[in-house]
Design a protein around this nucleic acid. Structure first.
Length: 291
DNA sequence: ACTCGTGTTAGCTG
DNA sequence: TCAGCTAACACGAG
């Protein structure tokens, strides 16, 4: 289930495999995943075009689409300058993307898979179960969105502006600004603020627990009760949690994630790990170090 | 059978 | 209007 690191892996898959291939067909039958669009809307918006770039902010991705169905180099084409749609893709809790190469055997390689795909690969990827959206390219290859729970979203022109700054690469000062800006009061628990995608984009439930544990801050502490030094420490902890997760292959590799279960001990001090609900999500923290 | 979930969001409350 | 919280969403896994 993807947070920023898994979504970045999915974006790379799209950037490496889905660009500059002419779109010949679109499967947009799943009107829950594409809501409020109805089947056929995405199909007619995409057929004949190409994806030109793959972007990400937080856990949201979008593909820019060539504005010209016939001659992408023609500056006189009225479609070329304005009104080009972006294809928004959000993997939700359980989505992955799979890109297959051209059908010609001499150029086809292994499928590119992005997202959290630690489940049974044969069942989930190779068999192509749970297909919720797909694009077939003119070369015979495909880009598919697979998602058993159907909590993924595919839309046109996603509102990226509604998201806060991408969590990856934020300086401690920019992190503090994001966490405290635009509010008269900040009584919410710090974990709830970390999870608010309009404040900071990309941190999910596991990364929030990991970063708060690294910074030795109790998840239930109100944002207003944290010192500047604590916020700086948390900002740096978010960065190290993110870069470690990307380097190690996913948020599930975090230092404290394996200790999110009853009876577990803190990997740093040996204190008892305890759990509760903070920000509406199951939360684990060290009873000794995170007071 | 029953509970839970690495995400988002409409709708409610004070 | 704002800030914060809860339930609901869909469906597989334990």
């Amino acid at each position: 289930m993807p947070e920023l690191p898994e979504v970045e892996s999915a974006r790379r898959v799209l950037a490496d495999g889905a660009l500059h291939r002419r779109i010949a067909d679109v499967d947009d039958h799943d009107d829950y995943v594409t809501r409020p669009l109805t089947p056929g809307a995405l199909r007619s918006a995409l057929i004949g075009r190409t994806f030109t770039a793959a972007h990400r902010r937080g856990k949201s991705m979008w593909l820019t689409v060539s504005g010209d169905r016939d001659d992408p180099t023609d500056p006189a084409d009225p479609d070329a300058s304005s009104g080009d749609p972006d294809l928004g893709i959000h993997l939700g809790m359980s989505g992955i993307v799979v890109v297959t190469g051209p059908s010609a055997p001499e150029v086809s390689g292994p499928d590119l898979v992005g997202g959290d795909y630690r489940r049974d690969r044969e069942q989930f990827v190779d068999r192509g179960a749970y297909q919720r959206f797909a694009v077939t390219f003119a070369d015979g290859g495909r880009m598919r969105l697979l998602d058993p729970r159907r909590l993924s979203r595919v839309r046109l022109d996603p509102d990226i502006q509604a998201l806060g700054p991408d969590a990856l690469g934020l300086t401690a000062k920019a992190f503090r600004t994001a966490m405290t800006a635009g509010r008269r009061v900040s009584t919410a628990p710090v974990k709830a603020r970390l999870l608010d995608q309009s404040v900071l984009a990309g941190v999910g439930n596991l990364l929030a627990d990991e970063a708060l544990w690294r910074a030795k801050i109790n998840p239930g502490r109100g944002v207003d009760t944290l010192s500047t030094a604590q916020l700086n420490r948390l900002g740096r902890a978010v960065q190290s949690a993110l870069t470690d997760a990307i380097a190690r292959g996913g948020v599930h590799t975090g230092d404290v994630i394996a200790a999110r279960k009853s009876g577990a001990r803190c990997p740093r001090c040996g204190g008892a790990m305890v759990s509760g609900v903070v920000g509406g999500r199951t939360t684990w923290w060290c009873s000794k170090e995170q007071r």
